[in-house]
């Protein structure tokens, strides 16, 4: 375990370096630059701007400069939000997305696994069908439609939950539900499918023969073994949820990090694009490492190299 983590830290650095390099190149070859605007600027002014942000240097020089700053933990400055560093922006925005994402993750896991288990246990019954319809709604409606529906029903018709903004814990409920809709559906389907797979294994029958009650068997034996695919999905899912969703933060006016994944790209805000990408990458690697460790805990026979 110890060596696994050490090796993972080492490989994480390499992965992040590769990601930073590819993104660094990508932002520079995509057409359109940070200072292209509705009103075209005179070339002299563009030259002043490029000089200010060292964009007048050759790409290799810029790359060396960037890596040198990155090594010090400095993610650079934003061209769009003048005088704000990427570190500052992410420091403000990440905690918000993280809180919301964790709540969304809890909703997704609770609803997803509960729905999936109920569907699997009552396979073929009306409950199973109802669960299936809910799941299908969760994935076939785009999240902006789900958000708009939730706002309409709870915010405007019944007025029991806030429409948007980020003021109190109640303001988290609708966004977290919107965030959780699609992942919950995915988890429910996976849970149902893997429980059905396991439930017919002979050792489950054996466990029941030993006198364990039905639900005890499900919780103690079945779920534990059905968890592998669920945990697999949870790795990237955690990273996606806690770094924020563009649509959800946009719809509910939440000052999170998710919106930068889109707006930084549309603004061609180079350092901010690489910054958000690296934060996402880092969290993804951590989450996936935890997933690999959990695999071994669930099934000690699984061997995972660092």
């Amino acid at each position: 375990m110890f060596w696994l983590i050490i090796k993972r830290i080492f490989s994480a650095l390499i992965v992040l370096w590769i990601v930073a390099t590819i993104t660094f190149v990508l932002v520079r070859i995509v057409p359109g630059g940070p200072f292209d605007a509705d009103k075209n600027l005179p070339p002299q002014i563009i030259a002043n701007l490029k000089a200010k942000y060292h964009l007048d240097k050759s790409v290799s020089e810029q790359y060396v400069l960037y890596l040198a700053r990155l090594a010090k933990g400095d993610l650079g400055v934003s061209y769009k939000y003048v005088n704000r560093s990427v570190n500052d922006i992410l420091k403000d925005a990440f905690p918000v997305s993280c809180q919301l994402g964790l709540l969304g993750l809890v909703f997704a896991i609770v609803f997803g696994i509960a729905l999936g288990t109920i569907a699997a246990v009552n396979r073929g019954s009306t409950l199973d069908t109802l669960a299936m319809i809910k799941v299908t709604l969760g994935i076939s409606l785009p999240s902006f439609v789900i958000g708009a529906l939730l706002i309409f029903v709870f915010g405007i018709q019944f007025k029991i939950l806030p429409v948007g903004l980020w003021e109190s814990p109640y303001h988290m409920i609708l966004p977290a539900l919107t965030l959780a809709a699609s992942p919950a559906a995915y988890l429910a389907r996976l849970t149902r499918s893997s429980i059905l797979e396991i439930i017919q294994k002979d050792w489950v029958r054996t466990a029941r023969c030993k006198g364990l009650s039905f639900w005890q068997t499900i919780i103690k034996h079945v779920l534990r073994n059905a968890l592998v695919p669920i945990v697999t999905v949870l790795g990237p899912l955690t990273a996606i949820l806690i770094t924020g969703s563009f649509v959800v933060e946009f719809i509910y006016a939440i000052p999170g990090m998710g919106r930068f994944f889109i707006t930084a790209v549309t603004n061609r805000d180079y350092d901010l694009i690489i910054g958000t990408t690296l934060v996402f990458g880092l969290i993804l690697i951590i989450a996936n490492t935890i997933v690999d460790i959990v695999y071994v805990m669930l099934n000690p026979k699984m061997q995972i190299e660092g």
């Binding site: 992965v15 590769i18 990601v19 590819i22 993104t23 990508l26 932002v27 995509v30 990237p236 990273a239 994944f261 889109i262 790209v265 549309t266 694009i273 958000t276 990408t277 690296l278 996402f280 990458g281 993804l284 690697i285 996936n288």
Partner: peptide, 10 residues
């Protein structure tokens, strides 16, 4: 991991 991390939109 790398493929997941790269910004889709870009």
């Amino acid at each position: 991991d790398i493929a997941y991390s790269l910004p889709d939109l870009l």
